[in-house]
């Protein structure tokens, strides 16, 4: 057992078994208490819905995926640049940081209707909401990564006459990478949340849109199928980052 827990496969096998067990339990509860499908559909109903609505689900899932990824990529770019500015420039830190914090406290769901008015009910509000939710943790973590470089290391570089850009390249950036990856994992799920919020308020497609449509026509199994696919995509993205992190940050054992 001890040996199994230490092995790599344990990290996949255990959650897999837990998921199956959860589904089985769920199925049993639904059957046992005779819960009607429009309250809580059994997993079997959900899978059935997945098969029945496969084309619809696929199209909307792709829509959600690419809007999320686009927003996420934007967030990474802007987040890294902002983090670099905040981390290295006192002026930027003093001016930008309070604004960012203030902005971050605004519930993004409140902005979506505005975005819809400006850009229409399409993919743009979804992309922007994903971006708005995801860039903040990235910016903060890049700044944090730059700030936590050992003071001795900063002194070594300064006394070599390193420029700020060189310091970033040689030390700040690699030092920030573990922080960035920690934030990417959070930001990825934030981006999904942003997209779905926006899609459920103002959109013409996407899983969020599909869920709203399905629930309003009491097609609860379909809504759950969409939810499940969302969870799956979020998890896959997370696993992807864990994988890339292991490759990139080879020094952090």
């Amino acid at each position: 057992m001890e040996k199994f827990l230490k092995s790599k496969s344990a990290g996949f096998i255990l959650p897999f078994i837990a998921t199956i067990a959860l589904f089985v339990l769920w199925e049993l509860i639904v059957i046992l208490f005779k819960i009607p499908p429009f309250n809580l559909p059994a997993p079997s109903d959900i899978f059935q819905a997945m098969i029945n609505f496969a084309p619809q689900l696929t199209v909307n899932a792709f829509r959600t995926l690419w809007t999320t990824m686009l927003g996420f990529v934007l967030a990474v770019g802007v987040g890294v640049i902002l983090g670099f500015l905040i981390g290295y420039s006192k002026v930027a830190y003093l001016t930008l940081y309070p604004l960012l914090v203030a902005f971050n406290t605004i519930p993004k769901a409140a902005i979506v209707p505005l975005l819809a008015i400006w850009f229409g009910a399409n993919a743009i509000p979804a992309t922007l909401t994903a971006f708005l939710l995801a860039f903040f943790p990235i910016a903060v973590n890049v700044a944090l990564g730059l700030d936590t470089v050992e003071p001795e290391m900063k002194d070594v570089l300064r006394s070599l006459g390193a420029s700020q850009l060189e310091t970033f390249q040689k030390v700040g950036w690699p030092h920030s990478l573990p922080y960035i990856f920690a934030s990417l994992k959070i930001a990825a799920s934030f981006a999904f949340i942003g997209t779905v919020i926006s899609e459920s308020v103002a959109s013409n497609a996407g899983l969020g849109y599909l869920i709203v449509q399905a629930t309003s026509s009491f097609d609860i199994p379909l809504a759950f199928a969409a939810l499940l696919i969302l969870a799956l995509m979020g998890t896959l993205l997370y696993v992807f980052f864990v994988f890339v992190e292991k490759k990139v940050i080879y020094w952090a054992r």
């Binding site: 050992e150 001795e152 290391m153 002194d155 070599l160 040689k170």
Partner: peptide, 18 residues
């Protein structure tokens, strides 16, 4: 201002882990 071309070592021998 910081001299360039100085060598420094501290009690804490900071190295880049990567």
């Amino acid at each position: 201002k910081p001299l360039k071309n100085v060598g420094i070592a501290f009690q804490n021998p900071v190295m880049l882990p990567w």
